[in-house]
């Protein structure tokens, strides 16, 4: 039950969505884009989201696209996580998505909503960070396409009134070896203590992490340490020196414990991907 009311809009096109946003703002409203709506509803209930006009983007064709075109996988932002998992064209994405929340909730949670949400974890972004994907953003001046690394700095830096329409991923990445593991405080339920996704691109090892810090990130600095020659243990120790700050210290686990868990996970994952060489 939400303590406030809002108007509900269901635009059919990207342009209509953007136009609605501008118009509502001019009318003095506080519009938000609404995708799965799970965060808007659950945080709204606690007054942590303020809006009086929601623009549901689920009826916009582009936002529901899920195809391969010109060597690019196109993932619409309003696709539910389970829709992505079921088709399984991008196994790493399926894997990362399947760790979020629970199955029924993921029938509602969308790729774009997860990436653009307030929650620290946003695990669905990890595969896109690892594959140097591009984001397609709609705004006043129409659509623009940008490398995700330019726009995703701790969160997706959108201008007011912009929304994420699609993510484009070079299809060559779809079949590269990967591992993605989510470790929780206890057993199989709950937020991540740490989620690590690793992708092997030829000789390059790419790492993206969620749950360690209050934001998900591609661990470029850590990758460099891992890339070096030497015993795995040493390389991991070196990598741990490049963990961004702050490390989370909360209900799920202390920061010291998180670093311990990360170290273990890196050992396991890298050993699995690198095979048995030292």
């Amino acid at each position: 039950m939400l303590p406030y009311d809002f108007d509900y809009y269901l635009p059919k096109t990207v342009e209509e969505g953007v136009r609605l946003f501008q118009q509502l703002e001019r009318e003095g409203k506080i519009p938000v884009y609404y995708s799965g709506g799970t965060e808007i509803i659950t945080l709204g209930r606690l007054n942590l989201v303020e809006t009086n006009a929601v623009i549901d983007i689920k009826a916009i064709g582009e936002c529901k696209e899920f195809t391969i075109k010109d060597q690019q996988l196109i993932v619409g932002s309003a696709l539910s996580l389970t829709a992505v998992e079921e088709k399984n064209v991008f196994p790493l994405l399926s894997k990362a998505a399947s760790g979020v929340a629970d199955h029924t909730a993921r029938n509602k949670i969308t790729v774009g909503g997860n990436i653009c949400g307030q929650i620290f974890y946003r695990e669905a972004v990890l595969p896109f960070l690892l594959t140097d994907s591009h984001v397609v953003i709609a705004g006043k001046n129409g659509l623009r396409q940008t490398p995700i690394h330019q726009l995703f700095k701790r969160n997706l830096k959108l201008q007011k009134g912009e929304f994420l329409v699609q993510l484009h991923t070079d299809r060559r990445f779809l079949r590269m070896p990967y591992v993605c593991v989510k470790r929780r405080q206890q057993w199989d339920t709950g937020y991540p203590l740490i989620t690590v996704a690793v992708l092997k691109k030829e000789d390059e090892t790419r790492i993206a992490i969620s749950g360690l810090c209050p934001f998900p990130f591609r661990a470029f600095e850590m990758e460099k340490s891992i890339q070096q020659v030497g015993p795995l243990g040493d390389r991991i120790q070196e990598a741990l020196r490049h963990v961004p700050q702050p490390v989370l210290d909360d209900v799920e686990g202390s920061s010291g414990y998180r670093v311990f868990v990360l170290e273990q996970m890196l050992q396991d994952l890298l050993r699995e991907l690198e095979g048995n060489h030292p």
Binding site: T38, I41, T104, N107, K108
Partner: peptide, 20 residues
């Protein structure tokens, strides 16, 4: 969205009706 007690089917898919 945590407990599932509100689950219904929408077009045959399970949905938490408190999240919709």
């Amino acid at each position: 969205g945590d407990c599932g007690a509100c689950t219904v089917n929408v077009n045959g898919t399970a949905m938490k009706s408190c999240l919709m």
